[in-house]
Design a protein around this nucleic acid. Structure first.
Lengths: 323, 323
DNA sequence: ATGAAAGCGCTAACAT
DNA sequence: ATGTTAGCGCTTTCAT
């Protein structure tokens, strides 16, 4: 193992000079700097991460608690993680993937000074982890919008605005009776924050534009078809739909479209591209959410002042299925 | 911050005693152990990860390079990561997600002693990272089977056996003319290792069982339908299919099934469940692959002797779409 | 069964 | 502009 002492010896300078060349926290004569840089290259030296973080009290690591379980939209999770990774790397941070989805894992990482900050994904309306991170020595950012966020820092997609946007668009298209086809029953009943916010935005938007709107749970599996057929049978005047269920979308949307109805799909971009005939798409900017969360964490570390809650706005995409 | 010295003081023992209580590397009198344990609990003490790894020369961290880009099957990636995470946690390891998909990221992590071992996902047939990890101070495990694996340790799904298994099953079902519908053209042309191995196994299996078999690229998007229709139009006697393309499966498989043909799908379990009528399923045991890779890494760290290449066998699942 | 103390490889005062 | 050195919080050898 090459250490800073080896580099110092090779460059005939003191250890601290090498350290300062590395950190740039001191002005170094061009000549010295050159010798040190050369020695570092010659010896293929990398500072020992643990030694550095022990001395500097900073790990250059962000702890990430991601839901690796089923039931969440893996595409969205992956994109968010990718966004965090991208922002982290741009700032020379690495990501410690916490293997454990509970408060304990967060506590341990923070208490052990294994991370400088924490990013917690998939935060539910009322989540015990909100209380946990509040009392931790490391700053943290939640992805999701709990009902009682307290003074926690949160980043999320603006589901309410998305619901409102969809309603406005359906009104613009001339519909009178519209519906939101959303998560499976069990998710609806959990009152996951985003489910409720989307519904509120949608219903609010309908009222605003004089639409009659309703909300329906939608199973992910194949019997989604029967469910949807049933709903339309009971409500023949329902002509426009906001669809928010990635599992069911490819199975059900073509059917609704074939029935001559307008479908606005809220889903990741790649999925929208595989379903032809969608009237519009509301893209969830998953990667941006991740990047925003990482930046929030870095802001907290830097002491930059910022809003506690950052909601990323929805945007309406064109319906560009390739076929 | 609570340190080991605080604990030692509270328990009225020496620092080393606390350390030994924690590590269990020394026999401690019940009385002392009790006092130390109590003090640790009272003070809510967690050892400082960096300090520990600096002194012990071990980080308890596995570096993971995962493909966060598009084009790979995110479900599979996530499941593999989950498998690694599970095995890692079971052994008190954490995972450092390397933000960077190149050799440099691997080098840096290893050289900086930020990780004890590396797991590299999505390794292609000929991958520069194979050479990179060979010369690193940390042991590494590749997920994938490069054509020249050298003395690298590899874990992967046994795609060849899977192809063979599918052919055997199609023969058993009485088919004479069968096909493998696989990755999109561009992936086929890259000769990604698994694509070739699957093809070889399938063709080999066909020969073995006297089947006439062919291999076809399959676009992921909606024009998969046209492609597939074209193939069947040209080969009306083709009655059985091994389908290996998660993106196209939900769009195309129902159509093939409706045409009265047998479809064996090779895909993650959750996807198989959304497509009714599949004759059989070959489940890619993604989570097991991750777990196996993690265990391989831990074995290397422990010096346990093991095979360089571990291929996980395919298994035929029943066709249990819920509908 | 326990303690004392010498590192581990760095950073950041405190020198000059 | 550079060097010296006291830590950072642990593990582990060497004592007793």
């Amino acid at each position: 193992m090459t250490t800073i002492a080896d580099v110092a010896r090779a460059a005939r300078v003191s250890i601290s000079t090498v350290s300062y060349v590395l950190s740039g926290k001191r002005t170094i004569s061009p000549d010295t700097k050159e010798r040190v840089t050369q020695a570092i290259a010659d010896l293929n030296y990398s500072p020992h991460a643990s030694a550095r973080s022990l001395a500097s009290r900073s790990t250059q690591v962000i702890g990430l608690q991601a839901p690796l379980r089923a039931g969440v939209d893996v595409h969205v999770v992956m994109e968010i993680v990718a966004g965090i990774a991208r922002a982290a790397r741009a700032n020379r941070y690495n990501i410690l993937l916490l293997t454990g989805d509970d408060s304990e894992a967060l506590e341990h990482a923070a208490r052990a000074s294994a991370v400088d900050a924490l990013v917690v994904m998939d935060v539910e309306s009322t989540d015990p982890r909100i209380e946990t991170v509040k009392n931790l020595p490391a700053p943290s950012v939640l992805i999701g919008l709990p009902s009682e966020s307290g003074d926690a820092h949160c980043v999320d997609f603006d589901f309410e605005a998305a619901g409102r946007l969809a309603a406005a668009r359906l009104a613009e298209l001339g519909h009178k009776r519209v519906a939101l086809f959303g998560a499976p029953q069990e998710v609806m009943e959990r009152h996951t924050s985003y489910v409720d916010r989307l519904r509120q935005g949608f219903i609010g938007g309908c009222e605003e534009h004089g639409l009659s709107g309703s909300v329906h749970a939608c199973p992910t599996s194949t019997d989604a078809r029967a469910t949807v057929d049933g709903i339309f049978a009971e409500n023949p005047s329902m002509t426009g739909v906001l669809f928010h269920n990635e599992g069911a979308l490819p199975h059900v949307a073509p059917r609704i479209i074939a029935g001559g109805r307008d479908v606005i799909a809220m889903c990741p971009e790649h999925l929208a591209r595989t379903v032809p005939g969608l009237t519009d798409t509301i893209i969830v900017p998953a990667e941006d959410i991740g990047a925003a969360a990482a930046r929030a964490a870095l802001d907290l570390l830097a002491g930059t002042k910022r809003d506690r809650i950052e909601l990323l706005p929805p945007r309406l995409g064109s319906t560009s299925a390739e076929a």
